[in-house]
Design a protein around this nucleic acid. Structure first.
Lengths: 338, 338
DNA sequence: CTGAAAGCGCTTACAG
DNA sequence: CTGAAAGCGCTTACAG
């Protein structure tokens, strides 16, 4: 395997000149450029990126930490990140925590394996995050953490959850259950807050038995719905904190020979593709996944360039998408609202 | 930011000793070890992995090239890869080709950014792959390519497709359509072969109009099914080359006020989670995704260690999973077959 | 067990 | 425009 020195020797120039040609930096005469290119071709030379990285102290790689890569919500956000990363010459190293704590992935930053990171999940203490941010470029996406000073991009989860709950209330429901996300994460907590806020505002009760904690998986939605159905006084509708759990809930209701939305209405959160495929189609709060990803990467690039950020927190808009699972019959003039 | 030299100075030992302590190689007295650890702590020192990588010429990173990260089939294979990678101290760099050609990702190998690669898709010429394999450790998973000498792990796609088609034939269908994958990929071609084989074996006709080329996406399944429905003489059943397209087809049939399986039977391929959620639940050929991934990584690790491979091609078994979309009523004694 | 020194493959300020 | 040389942060064969 040939190295830069070999190329220089063959082209009869210095290593500096070869490097200048290959990196397109500095001026080199056309003649020398030609000689270098020829030598490169003859030797089938490929620069060893490690040498460059060590010298420039840049890896041109960023880390993305996702809680669950099999959830299409996150893979779509990833697409947004990748598209901007590529445009700017960055690679993406993926860390899939599988819903465990993410701190082991921070080693990539300490060890300089990556230039920066985007967290799509954060169960870490805000203090720790702040300390991390002092030393490394990091961006938080999807979640906003009270007390964390990290640049963040997200939707307003509280208000989104409130909207979904309000929609059920407006359809006449009073006994509304909530299948939460993991409550050691902000996402789960924020959506629970939104639910409580909506309920409190209309003076509706939220007894403990109506609030069950899931882990954002299809299975947890299925089993917790079972539990709700076995209540002495089951809910007439359910707001699940994400679509996967909502779909699990729908399956569970059907397995018990009840129907959605006639017996129990269900609404979800996220707007993943599967929400259009399940029957009845799921009413949900749709997040702009690709934009979340691309905006997060743009923020990170600003940090990497040490530019000043215009805004520390970007809030994108989601939207309520009304389909069939909530029992709302779309009237002609309702199309306008959509 | 402190470096290894700073640690050595503070601990009053040589850099060699510090390195020995940190890498756990070679013998160091307990006393010196203590001094080093103390200095590390005091300086909050983290080794810069780039220096080590350049020196050892190893990145401890492998590349995984996937065609579509939003398809849960691939994210599940990825899980299998990651679990074995982690056990062995390897990181995974993800390349999502989004169904484009994958060759740009080979640069990671040339540039020594990664120690090896697992391809979950390959549209590259077998000759090129062979040349690549001569110089770099690479493994092909999910697909087998005629003429490629790369270690490969996959299921038998031809026989799987044949089984799915046979199942439809055994239910009395004669006019069976096939929605293929992209025919510039082996996966699409192999499953088409299996379909043709099954049809030919029973002397059933496969006119061109019954074979339509999709791209493995939900949308292509939807639109191609529409096309099949508009045929003068539409098929009575459809074998789609993957589950996403099969689900698109089911949606399309329903949108046209026909029912599955009564009017048209549908079967898919892969066994992704969504196949259990769609209604009617999809009959499909289930692949052992996690095992494909973990086995591929194990093969790659052998290559990275320059061990001799016991086998160049590993074939795993998939299985036919009969649900409702094919119209097969499960009888008591049929449970035994399952 | 320990240290001095070479070297992995690059880039870049400096002098000319 | 060009080259000699230093140096990024490590690891490791070698000598003691």
């Amino acid at each position: 395997m040939s190295n830069l020195k070999d190329v220089a020797k063959l082209a009869k120039v210095s290593t500096a000149t070869v490097s200048r040609v290959l990196t397109n930096k500095g001026n080199v005469t056309a003649e020398n450029k030609r000689k270098v290119m020829e030598a490169v071709k003859e030797l089938n030379y490929h620069p060893n990126i490690l040498g460059r990285q060590l010298r420039t102290m840049e890896t041109k790689t960023i880390l993305v930490v996702v809680p669950d890569i099999t959830n299409t919500f996150f893979s779509n956000v990833l697409r947004g990140i990748e598209s901007i990363a590529m445009e700017n010459g960055y690679q993406v190293l993926l860390g899939d925590t599988q819903n465990r704590i993410e701190s082991e992935y921070f080693n990539h930053l300490y060890y300089k394996k990556v230039d920066g990171a985007i967290l799509l999940t954060a169960r870490t203490d805000p203090q720790v995050l702040n300390m991390l941010f002092e030393n490394y470029p990091i961006v938080l996406a999807c979640e906003f953490i009270e007390g964390a000073e990290i640049p963040t991009i997200n939707i307003d989860n509280i208000s989104g959850a409130q909207q979904m709950t309000n929609h059920l209330i407006s359809l006449g429901h009073e006994r509304i259950a909530h299948i939460t996300g993991p409550l050691d994460g902000v996402l789960g907590r924020d959506r629970l807050k939104g639910y409580r806020k909506a309920m409190a505002h209309r003076h509706l009760e939220t007894p403990d038995e109506l609030i069950v904690e899931g882990n954002f998986s299809f299975d947890s939605g299925y089993h917790l719905m079972e539990k709700l159905l076995n209540l002495k006084n089951p809910p007439t509708s359910v707001f699940a904190a994400n679509d996967e759990m909502a779909i699990g809930a729908i399956k569970s209701i059907k397995a018990n020979n009840l129907s959605v939305p006639e017996d129990i209405a269900v609404v979800g959160f996220d707007g993943i593709q599967m929400s259009t495929i399940v029957e009845p189609a799921l009413t949900t709060f749709s997040q702009p996944t690709f934009e979340i990803g691309s905006n997060a990467m743009e923020l990170l690039i600003c940090l990497l360039r040490k530019e000043r950020l215009e805004e520390k927190q970007v809030i994108l808009n989601g939207r309520t998408v009304i389909r069939e699972s909530c029992g709302y019959r779309i009237q002609v003039n309702d199309y306008l609202k959509n």
